[in-house]
Structures are given as C-alpha cells and as structure tokens.
Design a protein around this nucleic acid. Structure first.
Lengths: 361, 361
DNA sequence: GCGACAATTGACAACGCTGACAAGTGCAGG
DNA sequence: CCTGCACTTGTCAGCGTTGTCAATTGTCGC
C-alpha cells in the first residue's frame, strides 16, 4: 500500500535534526562575491550557458576552484527544470547483468554530477499494471530520464507511455531500434559470427548450438550470426540445435541432447554462459572432457565463466560500457543527436574451453 | 580530476529545458487549502512531529489521500536538515553480495521515501587517501548516512572519520561490534556449527575445512563454529585444513590438498561457495563423485551454488535482509536505540552435495 | 471563574539556485 | 557622433518545504 506519508502503522520516530548539510557550506554567493560578479553569472558558467565572455568565465572558474565550490543539487532541482536524477529501470533477474549495467550508469552519473536511482518493474504483469507502476514511479520522485534495460526496452506500452509523458528514455539492447528513442547495444550478430570463425579456425567442422529463450532477440541474433558465418566459411552440414533457455539446468538438458545427435558435434556454441556451464556438466556426465574431446563457447563473460572448470571461452559483452553510454545519452541532452542505435564493441575472451577437435578414429 | 563544474574538456552541450517537474503538480499549498489548515500544519503531519491533534492529523491525512499528494524531496532537502538520501558504501568486488545488499537497502529506501546512492571506495589504498575520498564524497552530495559493507565496516580510519564528521553510519557484518555505530550481521559461528551438525548427522566422521582469507573475520568464525561443534559432538580426530582464499581457483588447490591428506576426509566444509565450487572441480579431477564419494558444503548460497553440478548444499546468508535492516537503522533515527549488533537469521539450504559417507572397504 | 502553563496552530522568512527580463557594452553603418 | 543591433551581464522573484517564533487555544488548580 503506497502511503505517501510514510507508513502510518509504524511511526518511524520523530526525526532528530541531523547534520545533513555541512554547516556553513559555501554557496554560489561566496563564489560570486569572490569573483566579483553577479549570482546569475556564476550560474551561467556552471550551466555552460551561451553568451558568457571568456574573461568572466575564467574569473568564475577560478573562484570556484579556489573555494572548492560544489553546487547544491537540491536547490538546483527545486529552482530549475532538471532533477539531476536519472533512473535505471530494470526487471532482469540476472544480478551480474544488472550490477554491471548499473555500475556503468553510476560512473556516468558521477561524471555528470547526477544521482542514480534504481527502479524495478515486473515486465510479466499485464500492460495496464505496468503503466500504473510507471505512473507511480513518475509521480513519486521526478527524474530526468530512464535507462530501459531488456526486456523493458522492448515493451511497447512502456515506450508509448514514456513518450506520451514526454519523459526521456534510452533503450539498452533494443530489439527494434527506432528513431523515437535512442538506444545502445552491441552487435550480437557479429559476435556470433566471430565465435563461428574462432571455432572454424580451430579446425571444427561439426557444430551444435544451444539457443536462448524464444522471445530473446539477442539470443536469436547470436545464433543467426553464427549460422551465417558458418555458411560463409563453407560449412555445408547440419548444425544441431537445442534450447537451453539461458539457464544452467536448461544447458545441461540441451547439452545432453546435442551430445546425442548424430554425428556428434565437436564444438558447441552456447548463446549465454549459464547454459554453457550446464553444457559443461552434460559433457562431464557423458564422459567427455572439455576441451580435449569437445570444445565449448559461452557468451556474456559473466561471473560463471570463471566459476567452472575449464574456464569458459566466451564473448565479453560491454554491459558496463552500455550502461555508461545509455546514461550519458540521457544527460547530454542537446535534444536532437539521437542515433537510433549506438553499438558498443564486443570482445572475444579466449580462455580454456576451446581446442582443436580430437582426431577421428 | 574531480571538476565540480562538469568536464571542461567536453562541453555536454547546452541543456535544453526538459520536463523534469510534472507541470502543475500539487504541492503542500493545495493540501493545506483543501484541509483548511496552515502550511506548517501539513508539514507537521507529514513529518510526524509531536503536538498535533488527532482531528487535525485526520483532516490533513485525508486531504493528502484525496489529492494524492507526494512531498517534493528537493524542496524538503533544501529547506530542512535532511537530504533524503543514504548511501551504500562498498568495495566488495562480489557482484552477488553487493547486488543483494543493495536490493535490500533499496527496498528500505522505497519504504521510507528515501533515495539510495551507491558509492565505491577502494579499501586497499592508504588511510590518508581513503579519508580524502570520503571527504570528497561528503562534500560532493550530502547524504543522511552510510551503510558500510565489509571490509569498509572494519577500517578504523573510516569509522573514526565518519564519527568525527558526525555522519551516521551502520556497519554490515562488523568484525568487532561497538557501541559507537550500530551494526547488522549474522551468526557465522552458529552457522558453522549447524554445518558441522548436518554433516555429523549424515554419518561423517572425517572432515576437511577450506578456510577463507586470513583477515576475513566471518570466515574465521565459520571455521571456529564448525570446529567447536564437532568437538562438542564428540569428534576427536584431526580436521584437515587448507586455505581457499574465498576464490574458485584457491578452492581447487585447497580441495586437492585436502583430498591428499591422510586419512582422506569424507566431508569438506568450504567457508564460501566460490571455494566450494573449486573443491568440486578438485574432486572431479581426483576421480571422486560428489556426493557419493565425498560430501561438500558451501557457504553464502550465492549464484554459483546453482551453477555447478551437483547443486551445492550451503548456508543462506540473509544479505538482502541485512541491507534492508542496515538502511532502516539509518533512517529510523530516534537517536539512541543502537544495539551494537543486530543478528539476522541464517538458514541451511540443503541441496545435492551432501550424502552419507561411502562404506569403508 | 481566573491566571498560569502547556498544547496546538499559524505566519513568515529562509534554504541555494534558476528563469524571465532589464540593463549595460561594444561595434558597424550612417 | 549617433542609432541600431548583438552580445554580455545584472536584478529579482520565486521553486516547495522547513525552522523560528509568535499567537491561539485548552486544561488545571485554587
């Protein structure tokens, strides 16, 4: 029950005045006096407004530096149009992903003197409820924009609502980049292709793919890129596939399935690390040693990639960079430079789970 | 280079006015008018100040409910002593731990109409630098208090500085609870003992322990609790020990070491999940099947506990609850109810890595 | 029923900053 | 030298809330 006035049931005790504001903290007045200019001029310099002479700017910046002045966010927010808060809206249950994204967004906020808020919305609920939640969020504490993480970045009702409300938002790894809101993502297709080339170069010719959730676009692109690159490299045979649902247990099942297919693959590409870890177990259960008997490649370079043996060769997804870029996009608003999708570079992380295929017997 | 006035090198483009404040949003004035009382009375009700008659309170609360009023944080912070922001200060590289703690703190903030800030400090640096960082944090954006996560919660210079500055703080899993700052933690000793009893009941009589980093107090307590309970249960033999450093790779080495000791343990207690996962690998490399040939118990119930096969039996650490409790302690300041340490309950999570010992041959 | 005292309520000035608008300044062209 | 215009700089009134202090009410003892 959202009670705007705290929870009436448990009076949180009368607040004793506390030292929130450093007493006698220096303000814009001090800077203005020191620089011998007006208040507004200091404000102009701080906000990089146009029509400020170099001389004045220099004077003010020097005074700011000398006094070690830091503008008060609360006052700026109260007086102006900005709140100096952006929010990362997430639903992704993966702590690894969320944490990294958030870390990147946080860095961006620090760089821009913003605060980062975290909000969660359950994307599985009916549209109407999602909108209601969103509206509550908006009312409850204003913010200058949202970083939308998947799958939130692809829910039409979310996008439409935000647009209708005129709230800025950036989509992370959007399924269908559009001009309406900028997005940051990575080239999943290219990364899938890179995995294919890596495996091919190692000498593999019989492949298996562990696919992801049906509605997960990135997983589909990784698979497609992999398959396309294989075809381009001259591969003609059948590629076995099994769905691992991006989960450990699903990876075990899918791995076992792939191992049972004829002819048995010598290399398996799992479209995320969790399912790759599961596949690793399946291999062990089948009496196969990775990478001597069979090679395995994951995707994400998540925590689990180094919590299994052998360490997983995988694709580093620049999640933190995406968080940084998305947050920056939100704050560096000059209003119009919105490329539909900015792609961050992925990177192959070669560890120990890939080797040349065993000799045929 | 911390530049208070954004980065001079890359002008973030002149900010175009944006819709931060929902236009025509309702304020305290509206509530006051509707309830037919003064502004200050509304303020009193909202802040649960004393000396408010029930009649007035009822009137105001009704008006608030009818108007769906939400106080403006920026204005409150500007006018009053509180900033309505608390910060989780962390250095713990484990995304799992940090994420959970943060999630708990976040929930608490939502419940109290606060914002959560995240700050990071490198605890490995010299004391002087740590203090400088802390001071910068304090100056840069005020907040009403810090949640100190380990190992930050045990650095004397951090504690002293915060106390000297009069900034409230709560310690999470503190090494030496003191009356100076409240702490929340868990009973590591008791949890270690619980593991011992579980293994003993399963029939094990030869044990090994994978210890944690030397300076990690919780790891030491887990070990001690385990050992003490064993002694109490009547165990007299030697308990093999090896240091796993709380890491996967360290766990592999420590596991191998333990497996080589004579007589070989039939059950191993790893003081965290990562090293337990490593031990699992060591067992596999030694040709031992878990849990048929050897039992293994982890600690933390972290993500990896379900990313290995078999799933690890482990101890659930109420990290999120600790985050919630710590944040709540910061916000429910009535100034004096500070128990040195509030212990949150742990829970044994029995999964698949423990079984009765194999028959002697 | 009166004064003293406590409990309750209200008026009003900050809090630190920005937006709108006014005022100055310098330069080209007449 | 003056006018007009573009560029700079300054003045001032809030933004929505809380702290201070004064004003109003209610209560109690005698």
């Amino acid at each position: 029950m959202p009670d705007p006035v705290q929870d009436a049931a448990t009076p949180p005790a009368p607040a004793k005045p506390a030292p929130a504001r450093a007493a006698g903290s220096i303000t814009m007045h001090d800077v203005a006096r020191r620089a011998g200019v007006s208040l507004k001029s200091v404000s102009r310099v701080i906000n990089r407004e146009p029509h400020v002479s170099d001389k004045l700017r220099t004077k003010v910046e020097q005074a700011i530096a000398e006094l070690d002045y830091v503008p008060d966010t609360a006052a700026r927010s109260l007086a102006g149009a900005r709140s100096f808060i952006i929010s990362v809206l997430f639903d992704n249950p993966s702590p690894n992903y969320t944490m990294k994204l958030q870390a990147g967004a946080y860095r961006a906020c620090v760089d821009h003197q913003y605060h980062l808020r975290i909000d969660r919305i359950d994307s599985a609920r009916p549209d109407a409820e999602i909108v209601a939640e969103l509206a509550a969020l908006l009312r409850n504490g204003r913010c200058d924009g949202f970083v939308l993480t998947p799958p939130l970045a692809d829910i039409p009702v979310v996008l439409d609502f935000l647009q209708a409300q005129g709230v800025r938002h950036v989509r992370v790894a959007p399924e269908n980049p559009s001009a309406q809101a900028p997005g940051v993502g990575m080239d999943d297709t290219g990364a899938g292709a890179a995995v294919a080339r890596l495996l091919w170069r190692a000498g593999h010719r019989r492949f298996g793919v562990i696919t992801g959730p049906a509605n997960h676009g990135a997983a589909a692109r990784r698979r497609l890129g992999f398959l396309a690159a294989l075809a381009e490299l001259g591969h003609r045979g059948h590629v076995a596939e099994a769905n691992g649902g991006f989960a450990f247990e699903g990876g075990i099942r899918a791995g076992a399935q792939l191992l049972a297919s004829q002819p048995r693959p010598t290399a398996i590409f799992a479209t995320n690390d969790d399912s790759a870890a599961g596949a690793l177990v399946a291999c062990a259960q089948a009496g196969l040693t990775v990478p001597q008997d069979i090679s395995l490649c994951g995707f994400d370079d998540s925590w689990v990639a180094r919590s299994v043996w052998p360490y997983l060769t995988t694709v580093y997804q620049p999640i933190e960079e995406m968080g940084y870029a998305a947050a920056t996009l939100l704050m560096d608003r000059d209003g119009s430079d919105a490329p539909p999708l900015r792609q961050m570079p992925y990177r192959l992380v070669e560890r120990d789970s890939i080797a040349p295929p065993p000799h045929e017997i």
